[in-house]
Amino acid sequence: MVEKNVSRITMIHLLGLQTPHIITFLIFFLFLLIYCVTICGNLLIILLVSYSKSLHSPMYFFLTQLSVSDILLVTDILPNTLHAVLMKGIIISFSNCISQFYFFSVSEGLECFLLTVMCYDRYVAICKPLHYTLLMNFQLCWMMIITCWVLSLLEGLILTLTVSQLDFCGPNIVNHFFCDLDPILQLSCSDTANILLEMTLMTIINVLIPFFTIIISYVYIIITIFKIPSITGRQKVFSTCSSHLTVVCIYYGSMVCVYLVPHRGESWGITKFLSLMYTVVTPLMNPIIYSLRNKDLKEAVAKIINHCLHSHFSK
């Protein structure tokens, strides 16, 4: 039997990104800019969908929930990251580290479920257009959103409670810029077999099932698109789901790479970079991709600007 250290970890030392000193302030202002743009961009989408009646449809309703998830994720990750960049590391309490892991788990799980729900919406719209209004009704949309939130909150709670019951007896150094599961487990002197099994089951439910559901849905979508006789018609239909497909590729591509890359030695630098992709870059890109590639959102922005200008000059 392994004898455990009686002293329990109370503080966690996050090493952060460990950037060269000469570019510290550049990296800090870059991340600060990303944080501001991400918050403003996602809030803009929420306001646009709430303000414009033409955007009161299931697709944009799900998009607002994705924006809420992105705001939750970057607010959980980036403030501590900014601090760690300036101070070349950051010391936080163990309870704050566990709290960060909980909100990270919730937002990541929510993102996976929402992308799946949005894919189903595009599947019905393209493959079953005559039944779209009947299938994607107001009650079903709310049921799907509530289910996404409940599953994400429960998954995060189960994982966090299991992690918090482990014994952590040092060292207290985490070679990452946030409290992810693998770095936390490396601090534990308990048997982590149960939580690894639990994590595997959660990954199947949260990542693999949604991922394969999205793939199967897009197979049917692509088959339906190729059945459209005109090239113009194909392009028009494909444009309605191209934004979602782009976000899925960025998000799942980086997540899959993180769990395939070995977490030892110099590979931590690669792991941190890939983690940045789905914790920082994806929330930033979501509103940009949907705004630039969506005609309805651009028209809604134009209407609001015209309304503001008309109100200003009419005074």
Rank of each mutant, 00 (worst) to 15 (best):
T162W: 13
C127Y: 13
I205N: 11
L130G: 03
N175H: 14
T162I: 07
F177R: 08
N137F: 10
I158W: 09
T160E: 05
D191G: 06
Q139R: 14
V124S: 05
S152C: 04
I173W: 01
T203D: 00
I145R: 10
S190W: 14
M143W: 13
D182L: 09
L161G: 11
C127R: 08
W142R: 12
T192D: 02
L166P: 13
D191L: 06
K128V: 04
L161P: 12
C141W: 04
L157M: 08
N172E: 07
C127K: 05
P171T: 00
L151H: 08
F177I: 02
Y132S: 08
I209S: 03
I158E: 02
L196P: 00
M143L: 09
P129D: 12
E198S: 05
C127E: 07
D180I: 06
P171D: 02
P129E: 09
I173T: 03
L208D: 00
W149S: 01
M144P: 02
L197S: 13
P183K: 07
P171W: 01
M202R: 12
N137R: 06
N137S: 01
F178G: 03
Y132T: 11
D167S: 15
D121M: 01
F168Y: 15
L135T: 15
L135C: 01
V124Q: 10
S188T: 11
I209T: 11
D121Q: 13
D180K: 12
P171L: 00
M143A: 10
L153K: 03
M144D: 10
Q186P: 00
K128T: 07
L151G: 02
F168G: 03
S188M: 12
M199V: 07
L154C: 13
L185S: 01
M144Y: 10
I145G: 08
H131K: 15
C148A: 15
T162P: 01
K128F: 15
V174H: 02
T162S: 13
P210V: 02
E155Y: 10
P183G: 03
L151M: 12
A193G: 02
E198V: 04
L157G: 01
C148G: 10
M136H: 04
T133W: 10
K128M: 13
E198G: 14
L140C: 00
N137K: 05
L135K: 13
D180S: 14
M136N: 03
L134M: 11
E155H: 08
Y123Q: 00
L159F: 13
I145V: 15
N206Q: 12
G156F: 06
